Amino acid sequence: MSTDLQALFEAFGATVGKPAMSDAEFGETFRNMMSALVRFDYVVAFAYRGKERPIDLYSTFDPKEHIIFVTLYQAGPYLLDPFYHTAHARRTGVFRMRELAPDRFFSSEYYRTYYVQTGLAEEVGFFIAADSDTTIVLSLMRREKTGAFPAAEIALLKQVEPLVAKMARHYWSGLAARFDAQLNTGQQRGKKRGAKATALQPADAVWQDLNLTARETAIVDLVLQGHSSESIGLKLNISTGTVKVHRRNVYRKLGISSQTQLLSIYLKNFGATSEAHASPVSR
């Protein structure tokens, strides 16, 4: 598509003289700017910090879509999302999902049971390092019937990335305080329910009561993210055969025989630890 300069100038003009904007105001400004440059179906913006539940800053989903893209995502699947892991690594720039996904992502149980529900052909994200170890990710999504982003549009998004990053850091400053408030709210609710105090995030507590070793835990996390045994071996600097032995031991300990059952246990335990130690789903 051709660039709509008038729409772009109008969107950028909306920020002139405004020292601050609400989440919705800046989200709409970003959406209008991007609409002048490329074609897309959805926009969603999240803030990530460590393994904490992401903060939903802005999205354009209808209520039904919001359940899939937001509510279900924050219920646990975000920890298996390539975008989350890229944000957690504090990488910055514009990336396509296909660039970030592990080698078996599109055949993983996570993809088949959750991601496929989104009906997306492609997702492209602006990854922006913000304050206090927080990463902002603004995603543009295209449905299957719309198709993937052309190379020319990806190049254009990369060109505009420095401006988007500066604006996002300015209008979405102070996110650390919002994460702290979310964490404190979850801790207070946990105390009211009589939950045991813990220093662990729910993400770290998922496997703690299942008698898995640290190495086994690392391997099953990578399996669920969509890494093959070969990829896991390279990441952990162990042989493929050793990875397969650990996987067999995990399945034996858990009394399961498939990745489907492994994901089910993961989500069940994540839900239990989140209920005890974290704030309710809000995305």
Rank of each mutant, 00 (worst) to 15 (best):
F61W: 09
M97Q: 13
R112D: 11
K235M: 10
Y110G: 04
Y58L: 02
V38I: 13
E144A: 12
A14Y: 13
A7M: 11
F46W: 15
A11D: 03
F105V: 02
Y115D: 10
Y73C: 01
R96V: 00
D209Q: 14
R98V: 10
R98A: 14
T118M: 15
M97V: 11
T213S: 13
L222W: 00
D41A: 01
A47I: 01
V206R: 03
V43S: 08
K51Y: 15
I154N: 09
G241T: 03
D131W: 07
R104G: 06
I154D: 10
H246D: 11
L210P: 08
Y171M: 00
E28F: 10
L222C: 00
D23P: 02
I232H: 01
E28G: 12
S132E: 14
S229L: 00
T198A: 08
Q74P: 03
V137Q: 06
Y84F: 15
A197V: 12
A20Y: 14
A148P: 05
T135D: 07
E25H: 09
A129D: 15
S59D: 15
E52L: 11
N237P: 01
S173M: 06
D133K: 07
A278Y: 03
F9K: 15
T118H: 14
W207Q: 05
F40S: 01
N269Y: 12
V206T: 01
G255Q: 09
Y84L: 01
A36V: 02
G233V: 00
Q117W: 14
N249R: 06
L262R: 07
T260Q: 15
G186Y: 06
I128S: 02
L120N: 10
S239C: 00
P162W: 06
V164G: 04
L234H: 13
R112F: 09
I136Y: 12
Y171Q: 01
I256Q: 08
S107I: 09
L234V: 07
S228G: 04
F126Q: 01
L254W: 02
K158L: 03
T113A: 13
A197W: 13
P280A: 02
H227D: 06
K51S: 14
W172Y: 13
A11L: 03
F95M: 00
T86K: 09
I128W: 03
P63L: 04
A195W: 10
F105K: 04
Y114A: 05
T146E: 10
R39C: 04
Y251E: 10
R98N: 09
V160Q: 04
A101H: 01
L262I: 05
S22K: 09
P54Q: 04
L175E: 11
F126Y: 09
I256R: 10
K145H: 14
A11W: 03
S59V: 02
L138Q: 07
K64F: 12
E122W: 05
K192C: 08
M33S: 08
Y251H: 12
A195S: 15
T60H: 05
S257I: 11
Y251P: 03
N249G: 03
A276S: 13
L100K: 05
W207H: 06
P82G: 02
R90S: 08
G125H: 05
K196M: 15
D56A: 13
A14W: 11
V124Y: 06
W207V: 01
A181V: 05
Y58C: 02
R104I: 01
A165D: 06
T15D: 04
S257E: 15
M21H: 12
F9L: 15
Y111A: 06
A129L: 12
V137D: 10
V38E: 08
I232V: 06
L210W: 06
S108I: 02
A276F: 08
V220M: 08
T135H: 05
A203R: 07
